[in-house]
Design a protein around this nucleic acid. Structure first.
Lengths: 279, 279
DNA sequence: TTGACAATTGACCAGTCGGTCATTAGTATA
DNA sequence: TATACTAATGACCGACTGGTCAATTGTCAA
């Protein structure tokens, strides 16, 4: 299994440098010191590799931001923590961030397109819930504009340190962008994005995952993990999913146990939303 | 020569739909109803085609915005006219805008990268001069942040109607974004982008074109045009460049004559900057 | 040491690509 | 009609791609 990880690590490097289409499997396997045949023992195709990469990183990214927003109690810290977490994640995985920015715009493959669409929808949900917590119904008219401004700031300021390799003052950046966001939220009067407009490029794909789907993922995670606190926590959470007996603090603690494990991030995100825990 | 235009038109359609790399020359020639060999009578390679496309549209785009900003007398209309012109151009050439957004991020080819860099630099100059006219030295600290916010708004709101095909209320959009920009300019206090930072991803490429270079371009334009008012204007402007005799209004009138002709946009832009005409 | 099994290899395949060029079709002049 | 010229064609080329699979190597229990 660590062969899979090796391939993913080296592939991310090459994709970031040259792009997905421009990188051949031969290059990847040369870079790994393995044969071409060995690649196909770990991934059934080149497309399967990029899908695995996107899932691997996007799940971590989405979960991190979601957790940060949900676990911030003081509303005054919300924007700061959000931006800090966003750019911290981008910076930590800057090679993947490069791939994301390059390929997101031109995923002609149906499966990839839907994937990006889904993760985009999740991110919008996180931003939306943050905006609602911040301003409740004060900015009903301009809510969607504010969300798009936040996304615009994220994108533009990301490019600065993703494509140019600058030292990054995360604290200053988060303070600067949260100030900009607050200024906009409190002064905007002319919305451009209406409710109907948003619905016309609707998100019919972003269905809530059913309990069965969550169960599947849990069982899969449990199966592929060695004995550990994380594994026991997963088993307990699975029981809780089937028949709730534990109190919220206990459930929350179990989630804290598993969320640090990279392979459990997705399960943690789904369960947190399922149990409607705010932190 | 109109074969060249046919190929460019059809290629833009296909590139917008499928991307540059994913579109083969065979597809383009099939779509044009010509043979593969005929393609190579008009362009020496596939790369030469995309370079020609980028130049063709970027020159028009840059020139349009520059003209709009320079010719707006009333400072109160400046932002509105700027955004209106930007999105009007994007909308008018939405197929090319798609290509631009997709390929700009991943131009591994040295020549293309420098081209994008150059046009980006020109666009920043236009925005910079606009910001300076609007706020002079009131916002020295936050000037670059404001510029990046403007670019962020442009990018994010472009996606709305470039990738989803929505009806576009240009007036509302321009009003909405210019309000946002003004709010930011007047209230921002925490800059993130410092002078030193900007210099570290510097623009050493964006040299002023020399008089000789402008002359070259003028002569090239004159040579490939049939007799017309535009051609005569070009000849007069060439003389003016060599030894200035005409008064500013006359020069301005000549520029007005040529700027509507697609092939003269570039010359008009260069000359306007050379003669330092404000409108 | 043997033999059964799993892991790994890289030559090979069919297909696509950008690009070339001998050949052909079209056209205007004499 | 014959000639001279250009415009246009598409079969062909070499390079490279993602993917396969018979052959080889490595591993470990008997």
């Amino acid at each position: 299994m660590e062969k899979k990880q090796l391939i993913m690590d080296k592939a991310v490097e090459l994709f970031a440098k040259q792009g997905f289409e421009a990188t051949s499997i031969q290059q990847i396997t040369d870079h790994c010191g393995i044969s071409k045949g060995a690649f196909y023992l770990s991934f059934k195709s080149k497309d399967a590799l990029i899908v695995a990469l996107i899932d691997h990183f996007m799940i971590q990214f989405t979960e991190n931001i979601d957790y940060e927003v949900k676990s911030t109690k003081n509303v005054n810290d919300l924007l700061y923590n959000f931006y800090y977490a966003v750019f911290h994640s981008f910076h930590e995985h800057s090679d993947f961030a490069k791939i994301l920015m390059k390929e997101m715009m031109q995923s002609f493959d149906e499966e990839l397109f839907l994937k990006f669409h889904d993760y985009n929808g999740m991110m919008e949900k996180v931003i939306s819930s943050m905006v609602e917590r911040l301003y409740e119904d004060q900015i009903e008219q301009t809510k969607y504009d504010l969300m798009y401004c936040i996304k615009g700031l994220m994108k533009t300021y990301s490019e600065l340190f993703i494509f140019y390799e600058l030292p990054l003052d995360l604290d200053l950046l988060a303070r600067s962008l949260s100030e900009k966001t607050m200024i906009l939220a409190e002064n905007m009067t002319i919305p451009f994005i209406s409710n109907e407009m948003r619905e016309s490029f609707n998100h019919p794909l972003n269905e809530k995952p059913s309990q069965e789907q969550i169960l599947d993922i849990l069982e899969q995670n449990i199966a592929e993990m060695e004995a550990s606190i994380e594994k026991e926590s997963l088993v307990l959470l699975k029981q809780q999913l089937l028949e709730p007996t534990l109190s919220p603090p206990l459930v929350n603690g179990l989630l804290e146990n598993i969320r640090k494990h990279p392979h459990c991030k997705w399960a943690a995100y789904l369960l947190r939303n399922h149990f409607k825990l705010e932190h």
